[in-house]
Design a binder for these strands. Structure first.
Length: 571
RNA sequence: GCUUUCGUAGUUCAAUGGAUAGAACGCGGGUUUGCGGUACCCGUGAUCUAGGUUCGAUUCCUAGCGAGAGCACCA
């Protein structure tokens, strides 16, 4: 927003000229009881300059008052500079909010790749994938909103021991195979069961362990027809099923990378850097992280096969080959990989600094159930990402069915139920600082009351309903507006004005939960306003209030979409 | 053991080193002829402990206690 940028710049130039301080003057939100926003630099520099903070604040106010008329500026003890928008400025500022033209003020545009979701063929899509997907997608949307160039990538595991374990299960387990024309979901469930069986046998029996190793070697060498056929078939089933899920989750990717592509590249890069970076140890090729305060990890195992580590080295090269001009290359995973990622990145750095420098790890906490237990895909007995989506949809369908009875077609109701279910799940994941662990309470996530995804959608739908009912008026709003009466600016208008500052900070800090928190606050303000302001039929206030409704709806919709949800107009 | 992340109402979460620590659920009490009550309003209640830095600490530093995660051929 122009005004904010102008104020920021004025403060910066004042500090530089008068006090010789080069400062990135951050304007921050204030408690609405005090002001709309504030600058706290006077408190920060008072000591350093040997001047009373209030005096500096007063000087800043004096400086700014010369240039700026749209806000009231006050210096307040002990040294805050408070800014309060004028009524007329807020009335004017509603217009760009209505059209959605408010964008964060990000100067430094970057090219950013975000890699997220990363499920493995033959395995179920579990809750961790759901989390990574929700977080990665909302980050990507945030970056786009901030004006950055965004590339979405998904790195799917289609080789490795887990496949061998699954195929062992297919060939040796006594598990009912689905028919050729069975739904994809049944097919992938079958593969999941085979994997669980194979993984259990791997631990339980030396004979199975040997056979699985053999199968794994066959996969890498591509030299056994039956194994190849199952590998192909299972891979296709899984990938097609994942696409169904991505669609439900409102995600699309620009690039799909596969471990089968990265493995040979990684193998070659690692081998080419022995012994300068990697060394042989106990029959394996390892990277000694201890020299950098990290730990040692195996990149090529005894059998000469690349591990996850080597494949990730290959992935780094593959990304660079496809997108050589990346400023930032983000990988979103669970925090259990935090230490791993440091070692892997350091190894890539030792090979080629240029490849490693954009690499950045964004990790999220682990999700646990109300019992506090880790949710794992290895033991079988778990809530999966798929089952969670299904449960949520089923619950949402009941409510929607109850609400609409036979007023809408089944397809319409289904679409609404899907949007509500996805919002419920994503909200739970995105409502808090994502690096912390998440306690997932199924009941609470699906609840339609209080802090929840459905609450945001409901608020939006309420506003849409008013807009629909006033469609005739909307067209003439522009010319009616200035001639009619406005309400005194209240909480809702002022919360709306906070959006640019919130969005800017969310983009810079890469923190989607700031959008969630704001969306909740906005929704509360909207519902509260709704209770005390009649819109349609409010006579001379109608035009102004409709504009407030439009600005609020547009802003809330933007928030909902930044979180990767669908802002349905009815629910 | 080492490394790492975290510790805020009864519960689940907020708060660039700044003003009276902000919500939701729960609990108690209210609001309807006005556009969607899946809403709104009022009340209730919290910064793990001990030091330190600072005009000022939930935030930064140190130690302790407690919880999660990682630490060699899985991903």
């Amino acid at each position: 927003m122009k005004l904010l940028a102008q104020i920021k710049q004025s403060i910066e130039s004042y500090l530089l000229k008068t006090h010789g301080i080069a400062e990135d003057a951050q304007l921050i939100l204030s408690d609405l009881n005090h002001a709309d926003f504030q600058y706290n630099g006077a408190l920060k520099f008072a000591k350093q300059l040997g001047v009373a903070p209030l005096k500096i604040a007063e000087e800043i106010v004096e400086q700014l008052t010369q240039y700026v008329q749209d806000v009231e500026i006050k210096a307040v003890a002990p040294g805050y500079v408070n800014f309060i928008y004028t009524q007329s400025y807020i009335e004017d500022a509603l217009a760009p909010l209505v059209t959605g033209d408010v964008k964060p003020n990000i100067v430094d545009k970057k090219r950013i790749m975000v890699e997220y979701t990363d499920p493995n063929t033959f395995k179920v899509f579990h809750i961790g994938h759901l989390m990574t997907n929700a977080i990665g997608e909302s980050l990507a949307r945030l970056f786009e909103y901030g004006g950055h160039d965004v590339i979405r990538a998904n790195y799917q595991g289609d080789v490795g021991r887990h496949i061998a374990q699954a195929i062992y299960g297919v060939l040796n387990g006594d598990i009912q195979r689905p028919a050729d024309d069975a739904p994809l979901k049944e097919k992938t469930e079958y593969l999941g069961k085979c994997y669980v069986y194979g993984a259990q046998q791997f631990e339980a029996s030396d004979d199975a362990k040997a056979k699985i190793r053999e199968i794994n070697a066959h996969i890498y060498n591509n030299d056994n027809e039956e194994i190849n056929a199952w590998n192909q078939k299972g891979r296709n089933w899984s990938l097609e099923r994942f696409e169904e899920l991505y669609k439900i989750l409102n995600t699309k990717f620009n690039y799909y990378f596969f471990e089968s592509q990265t493995a040979p590249i990684g193998l070659e890069k690692v081998k080419a850097n022995i012994p300068s970076v990697f060394v042989e140890s106990d029959g394996a090729i390892v990277f000694k992280g201890e020299e950098y305060g990290l730990h040692t990890r195996v990149f090529i195992n005894k059998e000469g096969l690349p591990t996850y580590e080597a494949k990730d080295v290959g992935l780094a090269y593959l990304k660079h080959e496809k997108e050589p001009k990346l400023n930032i290359s983000i990988t979103v995973t669970a925090n259990e990989q935090a230490e791993y990622f440091k070692v892997m990145k350091k190894a890539v750095e030792c090979i080629d600094l240029k490849i490693a420098s954009p690499m950045m790890h964004v990790y999220h906490g682990m999700m646990s159930g109300p019992g506090g237990k880790k949710m794992s895909s290895r033991k079988g007995d778990v809530v999966t990402g798929e089952s969670l989506i299904e449960d949520a949809m089923e619950r949402a369908r009941e409510v929607i069915e109850e609400h609409y009875k036979d007023k809408k077609t089944a397809a319409e109701k289904d679409a609404i139920a899907e949007a509500v279910a996805v919002a419920a799940i994503k909200f739970t994941i995105l409502k808090q600082d994502s690096s912390k662990n998440i306690m997932f309470d199924l009941e609470k996530a699906l609840s339609f009351e209080g802090d929840s995804g459905p609450y945001l959608l409901y608020t939006n739908a309420r506003l849409c309903s008013i807009i629909r009912k006033s469609s005739g008026l909307m067209n003439v709003l522009g010319r009616m507006f200035s001639a009619k009466k406005s309400d005194p600016v209240g909480e809702l208008e002022r919360v709306l004005m906070q959006f640019p500052i919130v969005a800017e900070r969310a983009v810079e800090a890469m923190e989607s939960h700031r959008i969630t928190t704001y969306a909740l606050e906005l929704s509360r303000a909207i519902n509260s306003w709704y209770g005390s302001h009649k819109v349609i039929g409010s006579g001379e206030y109608e035009a102004y209030r409709l504009r407030v409704v439009q600005a609020a709806q547009q802003t809330l919709k933007t928030c909902i979409e930044l979180l990767g949800m669908k802002a349905v107009e009815e629910m």
